[in-house]
């Protein structure tokens, strides 16, 4: 995956600059307003400490989306490099595995950098806060594998489909998954929708790692949901890669 090398520097700037901007704007700007009303609803944490784990998870999800959607689809449809790769002893399943491994590695690197920025801002929580990194990678990939499967399935309308996923999937999930406010603030009718969001499970886990507050069985439940989603999506993605590249 040397292909990624030319984008390393811009990726690095984005990985550090992005979080710094979000933290400054949302944390220090909006946070000052929120904290004025007291932070009881946030479990006693300052606003910026409350949103920090969610920002990390949301950033991982964004990167997972772009790598699993246009970047992967391009290798199948536009550049067609995956057809060249699967003409060798490499099977479509191995190619799918390689995508999951590469994107997970890329997500881990970005999450580590994001975590370091959070440390600098003093909002990375205690030592257990470092667990936010694997949690963010898992929750992003639990969605990512499904987008990989989608990329191997769609053909001509890719841009439309990916934009739909972004607008009606990723963006609302980021806004309503207890990223910027607890879901208890939502009307009870739409609260179950947040339970369906993989990002909510990730946010809850990441926030627990940084600030604590979840019971053991809830941690186990969130983890189980994310793992199940990831494993099922992985199986589907491998299957879709074979149908697309060897039919």
């Amino acid at each position: 995956m040397r292909q990624w090398r030319p984008y390393f520097v811009s990726g690095l700037v984005e990985a550090v600059g992005g979080p710094a901007l979000y933290l400054l704007a949302l944390g220090l700007g909006m946070g000052t307003l929120v904290n004025r009303n007291g932070s009881a609803a946030l479990g006693g944490a300052s606003y910026v400490a409350y949103i920090a784990p969610a920002l990390l998870c949301a950033a991982a999800l964004q990167i997972a989306f772009s790598e699993c959607s246009f970047a992967t689809f391009g290798r199948i449809k536009w550049r067609r490099t995956l057809w060249g790769i699967t003409a060798t002893p490499i099977t479509p399943e191995i190619a799918a595995d390689a995508h999951v491994m590469f994107i997970s590695t890329r997500l881990t690197l970005s999450a580590v950098l994001y975590y370091l920025v959070l440390l600098v801002f003093g909002v990375a929580g205690g030592p257990a806060g470092v667990l936010m990194i694997p949690i963010a990678v898992l929750s992003a990939m639990a969605v990512g594998v499904w987008i990989l499967a989608l990329s191997a399935t769609i053909d001509d309308d890719a841009a439309v489909v990916f934009n739909l996923v972004m607008r009606f999937g990723i963006v609302p999930a980021t806004l309503f998954s207890a990223s910027f406010f607890p879901i208890e603030q939502l009307p009870w009718v739409i609260r179950p929708l947040a339970w369906l969001s993989p990002l909510w499970h990730g946010n809850e886990l990441a926030r627990d790692a940084a600030l604590g507050g979840l019971s053991a069985w809830r941690v186990a439940l969130h983890l189980a949901v994310l793992l199940a989603l990831f494993v099922a999506g992985f199986v589907v993605a491998r299957h879709r890669f074979r149908s697309r590249l060897a039919s």
Binding site: R2, Q3, P6, R79, R80, T81, L82, W83, G84, I85, A87, T88, P89, I90
Partner: peptide, 30 residues
């Protein structure tokens, strides 16, 4: 496939890599 060489109708080289890297990486797939 380990013993075949395949030249597809449409080139599917990795355009972001150099000529040498394309050959090197492809050999690694074997």
């Amino acid at each position: 496939r380990d013993r075949l060489g395949v030249v597809p109708q449409q080139d599917n080289l990795d355009e972001d890599l150099t000529v040498r890297e394309n050959l090197y990486i492809y050999a690694r797939y074997f």
